[in-house]
Design a protein around this nucleic acid. Sequence first.
DNA 1: CGGTAGATTGACTATAGTCAACACGAGTGG
DNA 2: CCACTCGTGTTGACTATAGTCAATCTACCG
Lengths: 234, 234
Amino acid sequence: MKFDKTIACDYCIRYNNGLFSHLTQEEQQKLNLEKQTKKLTKGTLLYNECSRLVGFYCIQSGILKIYKTGNEGKEQIIRFAKKGDIIGYRSILSGEPACTSAKVLEDAVVCFIPKNTLFDLIKSNPSFSLALIQLICAELGEANSFITEIAQKTVRERLAETLIILKRTFGVNNEGMLNISLTREEYANIIGTATESVIRLLAEFKQEKYIEISGRKIKILNENALKKIGNIFN
Amino acid sequence: MKFDKTIACDYCIRYNNGLFSHLTQEEQQKLNLEKQTKKLTKGTLLYNECSRLVGFYCIQSGILKIYKTGNEGKEQIIRFAKKGDIIGYRSILSGEPACTSAKVLEDAVVCFIPKNTLFDLIKSNPSFSLALIQLICAELGEANSFITEIAQKTVRERLAETLIILKRTFGVNNEGMLNISLTREEYANIIGTATESVIRLLAEFKQEKYIEISGRKIKILNENALKKIGNIFN
DNA sequence: CGGTAGATTGACTATAGTCAACACGAGTGG
DNA sequence: CCACTCGTGTTGACTATAGTCAATCTACCG
């Protein structure tokens, strides 16, 4: 991991879900001094379950997967973190070890913000606290939806839904390919199924011309069909 | 619904996850004036998805189920709320309609606390904010675990786990029966399965002498066996 | 030029969902 | 008081869905 301080917080302040836009000039400068910028290459494990974090991370670029390890050692991907997201805050706020792991999927630049900086901000800046609370509530709302979907939808439905959500979250490149590339196993670990099931269903979707596949790159050809399969109404 | 103000907040202050213990005398008095106490009988729907809440609720006694309705109209129970829990805060903090419904399972007494009271506290009392953040983070942590379990464990494993969790959460009465009584369908809606599957598995557990059943009352006879089945290690 | 990780396919099996019929008790209205 | 209904619980039979296992293939990397 390399550390540098070349990128000022101003950049993130504009993007991070508005979280840091509630800081005063003074607080912003303090943050700028106390944070550490890290460059992380693909495959790096930023932290894992049981890590005792001493700060949280703010993603400036790149993609990480946030996952939990089930009792058979199987990974369950809980969510992804991309530009503007913050991760690891749950652990330091509750004072417990992390309950998830974070691994880099696409080379990333993240800022490490020490625990005390966060606590100081909460203590001194109510607007910041409120924004943070709202951000956590949003994450909680998504987790609740995820529970319902994983409990009630079939694997086929969840796969279709996942493709739609990935498109919404990461967008597509100029060839229409999803801007995130996952292994079949990672798809399985989002959906909660076996790798082989993902392979078979992707092949089906391809067969029906809902998607186009080229290695790990996927292009959605018929979004409406996938929405219908996944029971997505918006 | 009946309203009264007979019960002072002091009572809850001591129990509510320490949340309200961070209030000053003055704030406690203000809260006491602004809250409304409601008595809710079994079966009452406190709010449902799409409700625009104007405050949140603090449970003084009784049990409510918090659930989401999936696209086939099937209920997914996300969690239960009992003495000391707060519900409905996510909706007012994010300014969105509720994403879950809350229905009374056992006659309850709840306090309604208006939105502005909550916002005022967040703005003026950083200790309260921090405690609130920690409370939400705890809920988020549980949601993440729930996702992993529902995605990876079999129905049998989840049922065993659910029984253990219900015992931990609600305890047992003097006959050893779980202090919560659910229909078979409600069990199915926690676990994410069909009612018939719950019935068959409960019969199995009974057969193996892990539990004793008398109508909706369940007694755990062999906790270790259930823990083993549910892969619970603590 | 192996070696390794990931992708694919087929065959088989287990798990759990669906459907239909029936049981049972608590209320309800004639 | 009795038939009736309704909600819930139960059971059996069948089916579909998805998991497991094993073999093979492919691409890329050192």
